[in-house]
Amino acid sequence: MQTTEEYNVASRELNQEVLIEIRNMNKWYSDFQVLTDINFSVYTGERVVICGPSGSGKSTLIRCINRLEEHQQGDIVFDGIALTDELKNIDKIRSEIGMCFQQFNLFPHLTVMENLVLAPMSVRNLSRAEAETLGSHFLEKVKIPDQAAKYPSQLSGGQQQRVAIARALCMQPRVMLFDEPTSALDPEMIAEVLDTMEELAADGMTMLCVTHEMGFARKVADRVIFMDAGQIIEENDPVNFFDNPQNARTQQFLKQIFEH
């Protein structure tokens, strides 16, 4: 797969406004250190892909950004707000960060539209009519406008994940986190979710994706981060990352992935 020119980092000027900054971050599960000396920033409008073998701490890292996991050392700063125990900050940050999960995590007892309007009405204090307008708009965007009245269990996996993306977008977040969004999907459904994510990228959404979809990374990412054993091993633009990896572990990982 070749780099598409319109998405390529070289062809676009990146905003230099730092949206997420992580400094010297460490995290342990009791005695076991899962993340070690994590340092990186995400700029507004940037698309960052994090890859690495399973157990390398990729998911844990992005789950720290909206405080689904707590870090013990270092700083995570989102748009100038430090992520601490302060509940006010956590609520504020979460309402500005959208997230999609491997298992979709739609609310099974609510219809698609109810899934979409719940947070905008509760957190943003929108009226039902306003929230539903917003919901319809984003359902349209993820190309399932006619499924609003259905329950999640009546949809295919790909459709469910697109609803999950729409649900996150309804909060009009500043950045979208994706935690292996296609790993639970059948192969024929992966494409429809990746297409949706690409469109999101084309719209200028800031994105941080943990994924094994290297085609997506090559095409859409401005920067690829490789993690192993809780550390960031290598960080580069996709062209150099895939064609000219520096670290031995990165080389080995890419070799294994592309052997098939």
């Binding site: 789950r63 309402s95 997230m99 609310f107 947070a119 957190v123 996150a168 909060m171």
Partner: peptide, 8 residues
């Protein structure tokens, strides 16, 4: 996770 991530 989903509830928290939505800011609820």
């Amino acid at each position: 996770d989903a509830s928290k991530a939505l800011g609820l």
